[in-house]
Amino acid sequence: MFLFLCTLQFGAGLDGTYRLAYGTLGLMSCAISGTFLWLWRINATPLATGMVLSWAGGGGMLGWWWCYALLDGPLWMSRHPALLAFASVYLVGAGLHFAVIGSGFGFPKWSWMLVVAVALGLALTITVLTGLAFSPM
């Protein structure tokens, strides 16, 4: 796949290749999310709920930025709060993953929150240290 995309960029350019990859990933994410929704419906795996939300959130974010690129980067899309909805779904799915994985290892039910708290704290620290924290776009 890497070689295909590298070859494609010679004809479509780097921007065109990224647009194609984002669109493909966004659409595939929706299909994968739908598959996990079906698996959740038939109770096939305890990870299904987290997978549905993770893939839906990731697909939504990829789809958002794909549309952003296709529309030549309108300013309103880079600042629109609707993108936070996709990020929220993505984060909830990730949290559910850790909850299921932790229960599989016999960890306390609340232990998954430590992973989320550490990730949030690390992201906040890096953001503050780079001077980008809470500044308007």
Rank of each mutant, 00 (worst) to 15 (best):
L5W: 11
C6H: 14
T7P: 07
T7F: 13
T7R: 14
Q9M: 14
Q9S: 14
F10P: 04
F10S: 10
F10V: 12
D15K: 08
Y18K: 12
R19W: 07
R19D: 09
L20F: 12
Y22W: 11
T24K: 04
M28Y: 02
S29E: 06
S29M: 11
S29G: 12
I32N: 09
I32A: 10
S33D: 07
F36A: 05
W38A: 07
L39T: 07
L39W: 09
L39H: 09
R41M: 11
R41Q: 14
N43F: 10
A44M: 10
L47S: 02
A48R: 03
A48Q: 03
T49S: 00
G50S: 00
M51A: 06
M51C: 08
V52Q: 03
L53R: 00
L53S: 01
W55T: 10
W55L: 07
A56Q: 05
G58A: 12
G58S: 12
G60H: 11
G60D: 11
M61N: 10
M61L: 15
M61F: 11
G63R: 12
G63Y: 08
W64P: 04
W64Y: 12
W64D: 06
W66F: 13
C67M: 10
Y68G: 07
Y68S: 05
Y68A: 08
A69V: 04
L70Q: 08
L70T: 06
L71W: 10
G73Q: 13
P74D: 05
L75W: 13
W76E: 13
M77D: 05
M77C: 08
M77G: 08
S78N: 11
S78H: 06
S78Q: 09
R79F: 03
H80N: 14
L84F: 15
A85F: 15
A85D: 10
A87C: 13
A87T: 11
A87I: 11
S88M: 13
V89L: 07
V89A: 02
Y90I: 04
A94G: 02
G95V: 02
L96N: 00
L96P: 01
V100M: 02
V100A: 02
V100E: 01
I101M: 00
I101Q: 00
G102V: 02
G102E: 00
G102N: 04
G102D: 02
S103I: 00
G104Q: 00
G104P: 01
F105C: 01
F105E: 03
F105K: 01
F107S: 01
P108D: 08
P108Y: 06
P108N: 08
K109I: 15
S111K: 00
S111G: 01
M113D: 02
L114A: 00
A117N: 04
A117D: 03
A117H: 03
A117R: 03
A119T: 02
L120G: 03
L120D: 03
G121I: 07
A123L: 10
A123W: 09
A123K: 07
L124W: 13
L124F: 12
T125M: 13
T125C: 11
V128L: 14
V128Q: 15
L129F: 15
L129I: 14
G131E: 12
A133F: 12
A133P: 05
A133T: 05
S135T: 13
